[in-house]
């Protein structure tokens, strides 16, 4: 039996690179040779809190090449460059049938519910794959998943041409939301971020004002930037309960708040403002159709991902140079890619 190296999740704070058999593609599946797999914020949460099933190979932000296809797969051949949707929907539940695929009742998620991409090879349903357009590099394609999630968050917000947008937290998702909001027609995007490196990245991604909320009073800064109205749309891409609690009065009356980051701690929700100001809070989870959009935008040169890649590391170093670096308080790194 052929073997490969893979990062296997064994529970809270326990991820090990081990020898595993190279999987066989079943009916309707493709075997992928992984080029890059990005470390996602959700992988970090899972590592910290033990949220995944022990024994699985994690990793879902992949760029790969088809190595083989299983029975019944048409239109894909070895050598094809691809990325995979991190959601493999059931296709039959009420949410799939109404286009709300990211909240499918019976979803499979490679790297979350079954083996994923921090490995030399993985298998995945061929219907979840997207062929990479010419001109999109493997490195760019490894950021299709977070790009798609950012586009989905903006789609969920209902952002309108001319809106003024606040993004709290300039990690990879926050930074990509800046770009997505501008594409969707935001007049200005303000970013609140404590880390200096990430503030620079936010400017690079097109933020018009970047605020350090440790130094400047964020409420006052946003009020001043919006003639005292508040932002039309607030994306909270920070896991801090304080940041989430602040959204209730950073958004204008009748505005929209999209919580993107996940708070482990309870949030002091200001329901009085929510009611009196008729606020809309809209959750956003993963994405689906936005994968194709993200790849098309990259192919057209209208979507940048390279500035976000802060390091490419070998699989053997995934813990020391990847997870542990990103989990340090105040980590400046944006996206770290693993190259098996």
């Amino acid at each position: 039996m052929e073997t490969m190296k893979a990062a296997v999740f064994h529970g809270q704070g326990d991820l090990r690179v081990e020898e595993r058999p190279v999987p066989e593609p079943g009916p309707g599946e493709a075997l992928l040779r992984i080029k890059y797999c990005g470390i996602c914020g959700s992988d970090l949460e899972a590592y910290r809190y033990g949220l995944y099933e022990p024994g699985i190979v994690i990793g879902h932000e992949i760029a790969a090449e088809v190595a083989a296809v299983g029975p019944g797969v048409a239109g894909l051949a070895p050598g094809d460059r691809v990325t995979s949707n991190d959601i493999v929907p059931c296709g039959e539940c009420r949410y799939c049938r109404t286009g709300r695929v990211s909240i499918c009742d019976a979803v499979t998620m490679p790297g979350v519910t079954c083996d994923g991409g921090f490995a030399e090879y993985m298998t995945v349903a061929a219907r979840a794959l997207y062929r990479l357009p010419d001109g999109v590099s493997d490195l760019q394609a490894a950021l299709t998943d977070p790009s798609s999630n950012a586009l989905h968050a903006v789609n969920r917000s209902g952002l309108r041409l001319g809106d003024r947008v606040l993004v709290i937290g300039a990690g990879p998702i926050g930074l990509l939301i800046v770009q997505a909001a501008l594409l969707a027609g935001a007049r200005r995007v303000f970013v609140a971020e404590m880390n200096e490196t990430r503030r620079c990245l936010a400017r690079e991604m097109g933020a018009s004002e970047v605020i350090n909320p440790e130094v400047d009073n964020l409420d006052l800064a946003v009020a001043d930037l919006t003639e005292d109205q508040g932002a039309d749309v607030v994306f909270c891409a920070s896991g801090s309960p304080g940041a989430m609690a602040s959204t209730f009065t950073l958004v204008r009356k009748g505005g929209v708040v999209v919580p993107v980051g996940i708070c482990e701690q309870p949030v002091a929700a200001d329901f009085l403002s929510l009611v009196m100001n008729e606020l809309d809070y809209r959750g956003t989870y993963a994405s689906y159709d936005e994968y194709g959009l993200a790849l098309d935008l990259m192919a057209q040169g209208r979507w940048r991902t390279e500035p976000l890649v802060s390091a490419v590391i070998p699989l053997e170093q995934i813990v020391a140079e990847g997870f542990e670096v990103l989990l340090q308080p105040g980590a400046a790194a944006a996206k770290i890619l693993v190259r098996p």
């Binding site: 009020a223 005292d228 009065t249 200001d270 329901f271 009085l272 403002s273």
Partner: peptide, 9 residues
């Protein structure tokens, strides 16, 4: 008076 922060509190 415009309030930013938790009004109820």
């Amino acid at each position: 008076l415009k309030i930013r922060g938790n009004l109820l509190k």
